[in-house]
Simulated scan of single mutants.
Amino acid sequence: MSFSAVNNSNKFLTMLIVASLSLSACATKPDRRGTPPKERQSNGPERASGIFLFPISGLFIGMDTNGDRATSFTEIDQGIKSEWATFERSPSAINFRKWSMENLGSTDASPSFIAFDHDFNGIISKAEFRSQIETEFEKLDRNSDGRLERSEMIVAFAAPQGERSRPSEEQGRPEGRGRRPRQ
């Protein structure tokens, strides 16, 4: 075998090894749970992993007409009238989709069309619209003072702590038949 044939063979072998290692690295799944188990277990309080606005909060923030960074029930009353006026007629699900995108940020955001349509007739009446907006206001007004402050419009999600248990343990089920008992 000539020197160039051996050199080409070595190059081919090197490329084959690099390709194999690359494919192996791509096929390896990282630990999707994040930190290692010892670091994940904690006796302290849960940490917040995120703070988010409720979808309806954007609508309520827009109803703060006096700019005091709180939305009063009086402002909500005026906001409801203004929002209702944007509909040409009592909205059906199709009309509601546009309103939901503009005011809640998504057609899937809560409250949904079904939440507004209390009698399930496929159309939202003015009374149903008012009732649902007022209900959402009252749910967020944690201190029941008739004013929604920004802090009441957010939700914090806690980071999970500790190891996950197996499904049979989570549901309180005994070991199934045919399974070997755990040691």
Rank of each mutant, 00 (worst) to 15 (best):
S125M: 02
R40W: 09
I51T: 14
S125W: 02
S165K: 11
N103M: 02
S24E: 03
A27P: 02
A85S: 10
W99S: 00
S92H: 03
D64H: 11
G58I: 00
I114G: 15
R179S: 11
T74D: 12
M153D: 10
G105W: 01
A93F: 03
F12P: 02
F137P: 05
D119N: 12
R166V: 13
S125R: 01
E175Q: 10
S4G: 02
T74P: 00
A19V: 06
S72D: 05
S92Q: 06
P30A: 10
A159F: 04
T74V: 13
I114A: 15
R147A: 12
T14L: 02
P37N: 03
S4F: 00
A127R: 06
I80F: 04
S165Q: 13
S42H: 09
A159Y: 03
I61W: 12
F12H: 15
F12S: 14
P55N: 01
T65C: 01
E88Q: 10
A156C: 04
A70N: 08
L23K: 08
E75Y: 02
D68T: 06
R179I: 01
S144C: 11
E102P: 00
E136F: 00
I80L: 06
E102M: 06
D119G: 04
F96H: 04
R182W: 10
Q171S: 13
P36H: 09
K98I: 03
R32Y: 10
M63T: 10
N103P: 09
I123H: 02
K139G: 07
E175L: 10
P55K: 00
D77T: 11
F129H: 05
T107R: 12
R142E: 14
Q171L: 15
G44A: 14
N43I: 15
I51L: 08
I94F: 13
F73E: 15
R147S: 14
F120R: 11
A48S: 13
F113N: 05
L13G: 12
S90N: 14
K126S: 11
R69T: 14
R182H: 13
G79N: 09
G146H: 07
L148C: 07
S90Q: 08
R97L: 12
I124E: 03
L104R: 05
G122W: 00
L53M: 13
N143E: 07
G178H: 03
A158N: 12
F87N: 04
R47Y: 05
P45I: 01
R180N: 11
I17M: 07
L140V: 04
C26M: 14
R179V: 07
A70D: 03
R177F: 11
E163A: 15
A5Q: 15
F60T: 01
D141M: 04
G172D: 05
T86S: 10
N7D: 03
V6L: 14
R180L: 07
R164C: 14
I94A: 10
P36S: 12
G162T: 02
A159V: 04
A19Q: 06
E75K: 01
R130L: 05
F116T: 01
F120S: 14
V155D: 08
T107N: 09
L59V: 03
S20G: 13
K29W: 03
F116Y: 10
E175T: 15
N10P: 00
A70Y: 02
T65V: 12
